[in-house]
């Protein structure tokens, strides 16, 4: 298989498959949990309160508001920098947006300056290293960490490492860009099947607990 065919494969059918699995998987998770709650756990809906869902989301999305964020400043900075970069860099990278605008979507949207995206990539990689080291040396994290948790971090870091190398033309660009695309696709496709799914389940649990604490128990949940 020539490099060109391979490129077409990973940017064509494989990309479609990855996005389909990612979006379909997340939707399925959302629908399944909602169905399960309706059928087997109806008190969840009985006490859901929009105001407190939003309040809880907001309070936990701002660094240093929640008590636990304030107790561990370094971790807080790292986790916020990580999550913001992790989402913003791939979505708003000029090269990615161009693929959307010239390709399927035909729309263009706001992009990050390349230099900013480049730094964000570095941040994601460094944060992954931090998380891995933390899982090795902080006893309460180490105690509940197994090999899968490290694989998860590698899975997340790989598209960023390869993207960084490709952008800076380190190594064989053609190989690197294909590795970048493939690792990104594997990452996307794995989200619904691993704890990376906290992307959708996290806000659902947060919202529910925000309602319980806010609407039922009349107390802060942060």
């Amino acid at each position: 298989m020539s490099m060109h065919t391979l490129y077409n494969l990973v940017t064509g059918p494989l990309a479609w498959a990855a996005f389909a699995i990612f979006i379909g998987g997340m939707l399925a998770k959302f629908i399944y949990l909602t169905y399960l709650a309706k059928k087997k756990d109806p008190t969840v809906f009985a006490y859901l309160s929009t105001k407190h869902v939003i309040r809880s989301w907001f309070m936990w999305s701002v660094p240093f508001v929640a008590k636990n964020w304030r107790l561990r400043p370094l971790f807080t900075v790292v986790t916020f920098a990580f999550h913001i970069s992790l989402l913003a860099a791939p979505i708003f990278l000029m090269a990615h947006v161009m693929m959307w605008s010239e390709g399927v979507l035909g729309i263009s949207f706001w992009t990050l300056p390349d230099q900013v995206a480049d730094w964000m990539t570095v941040i994601v990689i460094v944060c992954c290293v931090y998380f891995a080291v933390r899982r090795m040396i902080v006893p309460e994290a180490k105690y509940v960490t197994d090999i899968k948790d490290f694989l998860m971090l590698i899975l997340v870091a790989l598209p960023f490492i390869t993207g960084f190398l490709a952008y800076h033309q380190i190594g064989d660009y053609k190989v690197m860009i294909i590795l970048h695309i493939v690792s990104g696709e594997v990452w996307l496709a794995m989200i619904p099947f691993t704890w990376l799914g906290h992307m959708i389940l996290g806000p659902m649990v947060r919202g529910y607990m925000g309602s319980e604490f806010g609407a039922v128990r009349h107390v802060k949940d942060w």
């Binding site: 636990n68 994290a141 960490t145 948790d149 704890w195 799914g197 906290h198 389940l201 649990v205």
Partner: peptide, 11 residues
């Protein structure tokens, strides 16, 4: 939801 959301961070 609880078991699937936990990322084993120990926080």
């Amino acid at each position: 939801a609880y078991t699937k959301t936990c990322v084993h961070c120990g926080l």
